[in-house]
Write a protein that binds this DNA or RNA. Structure first.
Length: 500
RNA sequence: GCCGGUAUCGUCUAGGGGUUAGGACGGGUGGUUCUCAGCCAUCAAACCGGGGUUCGAAUCCCCGUACCGGUACCA
């Protein structure tokens, strides 16, 4: 079994295409097949190497590895269509001499006129066949005289072409609605419907899994396979991915490319897990399953027939799951860039990294995506008693719990660093004993004073993180104010307040 | 217009001639935790419409409707 993913390098890898790539990968991985990456860059206007590079990078990031194709080579190369022009040319000649293709000299204006006429008459706007019967020597003469020509494939009249689509069942088209397609443009570059056939045949692709938008191209391609006497691959057309409003997923729906999801701090295993479940289900009650475990169970027959809406909330849920399961070192490494953006971290040294590896996973476990980690850690790097007290709700609560604030400041001025959960709890108990406050009336004011925020990580985690940060002799991390100093600053800022 | 495809809670889906139509995300409520998140419990929420076949249709058939795709010298 040989499968391929064949993107056009025009822009970034879209999640819809990533899903198609994933289904191919799942199939190859699950059935012991070969997954091939081919680049379809015959649209020279829009294709760029930059885009090709980013797509390769995105595919690698997702973990959808290929064992043949661009980047890794193989026996059926080259794998970039722009490097296979000579192959297409040779096969076009073959097609022409067998009478399956012919030169067409119709101008764009003529074609447009034909088209509107057909539409007006309620007929499918297909090529009228003006150049179909042009004698070969006449065509040759006109070409020699420098006239521009395309090569069209001759589609037989009134024939039903059908194929068994693995996900949709039997699909039939009548050739009467199909015009003779251009297979080689006037600039000598092959058109998509032709190049795919040559490539899929020569690369010995056995299963073509692609987007539903290609379903009506399939009969043309089948006819070309037939003209060459080649056996066509098995086709499977998977439905498209939609936005929440049920229109095709686009930028106005937010992130649509794999690169954007990566930049926002989604984990690749979360994206692939989510995408695998969009349009396919491994059965009941299973949602969180890594793709390598999904692969052996993946069956094209079970892929849904209808378009799926991309649900960002469900992706977030899946991502949270993988964030909680991820290795601390990895989370730290992935989160540092976001902290650098805030200017809180520059080039962390190893002692800094140890600290970040303790602190970041705590934050990452309560966030949808890694880009939200800084907000969760702002209490460390961005503490300001004055700013916290500027918020009316904070000021009101702080004023109401002045006793706790004062006791906390006094307690921390004599206690040692609260380096762990136990030390913090002991200190909190002593504040409780001094003030008689407990529960929410005790801990919430402490949170306010020590973090400057009304919500955030559990204090058991947050306070040791503050203290640990304050003890750092770090050069790569913004200095972190210790708990005692925070308590003192908060209490004194509070005492400057007029009593309510 | 023409051709093709699709249709179960808001979303992703399971199921499928007789079921209390199941699960997950999201939402509501209650509990737990200093808070948010989480966790636990709990509630609301669906078979596109109309015909037909049948004792019985959400399931099979037909017709509509809606949506998606194609209708290029783009892929």
């Amino acid at each position: 079994m040989r499968l391929r993913f064949a993107p056009s390098p025009t822009g970034q890898l879209h999640v819809g295409n990533a899903r198609t790539a994933l289904f191919n990968w799942l199939m190859a991985r699950g059935q012991g097949g070969t997954f091939i990456l081919r680049i379809e860059d015959t649209d020279f206007e829009r294709s760029t190497r930059e885009s090709e590079r980013s797509m390769i990078e995105d595919l690698q990031w997702l973990g959808l590895d290929w064992t043949e194709g661009i980047d890794v080579g193989g026996e059926h190369g080259p794998y970039r269509q722009s490097e296979r022009l000579h192959i297409y040319r040779a096969h076009a000649v073959e097609l022409m001499s067998a009478g399956h293709a012919y030169h067409c000299f119709c101008s764009a204006e003529m074609l447009e006129a034909d088209r509107s006429a057909a539409l007006a008459a309620g007929r499918p706007p297909k090529y009228v066949g003006r150049c179909r019967q042009l004698p070969r020597d006449e065509a040759r003469r006109r070409i020699a005289s420098g006239e521009a020509a395309v090569i069209r494939f001759r589609v037989p009249d009134n024939r039903d072409v059908s194929f068994d689509d693995v996900v949709r069942g039997t699909v039939t088209f009548n050739t009467d609605v199909i015009g003779d397609p251009v297979i080689v443009r006037s600039d000598g570059v092959p058109a998509y419907n032709y190049a795919v056939v040559i490539d899929d045949a020569l690369m010995e692709i056995t299963h073509v899994i692609r987007g539903e938008d290609h379903i009506s191209n399939t009969p043309r391609q089948l006819l070309i396979f037939e003209a060459f006497g080649w056996r066509p691959p098995t086709f499977a057309h998977v439905s498209l991915v939609m936005g929440p409003d049920h229109s095709p997923l686009s930028k106005r729906h937010g992130a649509t490319s794999v690169a954007e999801f990566r930049a926002r701090g989604y984990l690749p295993e979360a994206l692939t897990n989510y995408l695998a479940l969009l349009g396919w289900s491994p059965g009941e009650k299973e949602e969180l399953v890594p793709i390598d475990q999904l692969a052996p169970r993946f069956r094209l027959q079970d892929v849904g027939h209808s378009a799926g809406v991309f649900d960002i909330d469900k992706l977030a849920w899946v991502n949270r799951h993988y964030l909680k399961a991820a290795d601390p070192g990895r989370l730290a490494r992935l989160s540092v860039p976001y902290l650098q953006q805030r200017g809180w971290v520059s080039e962390p040294m190893s002692s800094d990294l140890d600290y970040l590896e303790r602190v970041i996973p705590a934050a990452a476990g309560s966030v949808d995506r890694l880009e939200q980690v800084p907000a969760r850690l702002a209490f460390l790097f961005d503490y300001s008693a004055a700013r916290a007290l500027a918020a009316p709700a904070v000021r009101a609560e702080a004023l109401a719990s002045r006793a706790v604030m004062t006791a906390l400041a006094e307690e921390l001025s004599t206690s040692g660093r609260l380096v762990d959960r136990e030390a913090f709890r002991a200190a909190a108990s002593r504040v409780r004993d001094r003030t008689g406050q407990k529960g929410k009336a005790l801990f919430h004011p402490i949170r306010l004073a020590l973090t400057g925020e009304t919500e955030g990580l559990e204090l058991d985690l947050a306070v040791p993180a503050i203290e640990g940060g304050a003890m750092l002799h770090a050069s790569g991390i913004k200095p972190i104010m210790g708990a005692a100093e925070r308590a003192r600053e908060f209490a004194s800022a509070l005492n400057d307040e007029p009593t309510a």
